[in-house]
Design a protein around this nucleic acid. Structure first.
Lengths: 192, 192
DNA sequence: TGAAAATATTTTAAGCTTAAAATATTTTCG
DNA sequence: CGAAAATATTTTAAGCTTAAAATATTTTCA
């Protein structure tokens, strides 16, 4: 859950910028902020709904579902902890914790190849994959249902503009945080 | 941070539906799912950036910023714990925890009116409000920067479509979870 | 070879989050 | 009045999350 996120929150519509902060905003362009708050609202709303469905229908949390999705995509060999960390964009410690629980539940296995005992390959068990496929199918239905109020053409327009917005934000966030100064985009990380 | 959320994750663009789940998705419409994943991506990306800025520039977390924003909006009397819980759409226990920390830091005060000692009004201290205004000003600038790649007209179109998407999701999420069966939309809650 | 550096993961400390149980207080109503 | 219900908040148990420190193992290279 968590409706959190840098919001003059509780927004069901207009009233931005927030009351007292209004003074500080005087004369500033607020349209991009307004747009962002819509994105945030939808994101929170949909995530809340999906989490509730996952819990009620499958007794699974979103982090576990996401991790299983990555493993499903990876195929039978699975992925290493480091690969999962990068793919999911979460910390290594986080992957350790979530994998621990999935392993305890029998949804994934950990195995270390003899040639490098530092690393661990995580893979879905048969049961884990079966569970995931059922969840993925249901998930698609939930999303379709939530956005049923948009026509196919509206969905297309929105997706296109969102792509542009994403590129804008990704570029600018990246240049703020140079991280690594790496040459070609592969290095400095942890494994591959 | 957390890039989490019901995603065939790690998406920088296409490759949905995810590999093995593809079988389950056969013949299903995937456009709305694709759109949702764009929203999710942007939301995670921007929140990550904002959190980093808030921490680096103000040594503050997003939940604390959000709570302070609500209080700023509320004016000098502040808000009760229950009002904060509903406004921020988080649990009561959560509000207790975040307020505890803000209080410890001197950003907010708790006071209980004599006529109802169950309740507590939380308000920004002078220092808390000063801090918040500086953060809100910076926040607006970060958002403007991230979405600078969109023209004003694109921002307008996007905001309009997002509004429609939000209404769609909100309506459908609401009818799934009837919660209260209340008659006219005000009741059954906790306070006002 | 063998010490230093690099890599891969786990552990730890702290904070956010929820649902459910526990407390405290006020309101209702027999 | 006084017990039961309602209301407001805090506490608890569990899980997610991160950054930073600690471990374990492999690679580099003098």
């Amino acid at each position: 859950m968590s409706a959190r996120a840098s919001s003059p929150p509780g927004n069901d519509s207009a009233d931005y910028p927030p009351a007292s902060a209004a003074a500080a905003m005087a004369g500033r362009d607020v349209e991009r902020l307004r747009m962002w708050l819509r994105i945030l609202d939808i994101s929170n709303l949909v995530q809340r709904d999906i989490r509730a469905h996952l819990r009620a229908g499958f007794n699974v949390t979103l982090p576990r579902f996401d991790l299983m999705a990555a493993l499903d995509r990876a195929g039978p060999e699975g992925m290493t902890m480091g690969q999962l960390s990068r793919r999911l964009r979460v910390s290594g410690g986080n992957v350790t914790a979530v994998v621990d629980r999935l392993e305890r539940e029998g949804a994934v296995t950990r195995r270390s190849p003899p040639e490098d005992r530092r690393t661990h390959f995580i893979a879905l068990t048969e049961e884990g994959r079966r569970q995931f496929l059922a969840m993925a199918e249901a998930h698609l239905g939930w999303i379709d249902g939530l956005f049923a109020g948009l026509s196919p053409s509206e969905v297309g327009t929105l997706t296109g503009l969102l792509d542009k917005a994403r590129r804008s934000a990704a570029e600018r966030a990246a240049e703020e945080a140079p991280k690594d100064g790496a040459k070609d985009g592969r290095k400095g990380g942890r494994d591959g």
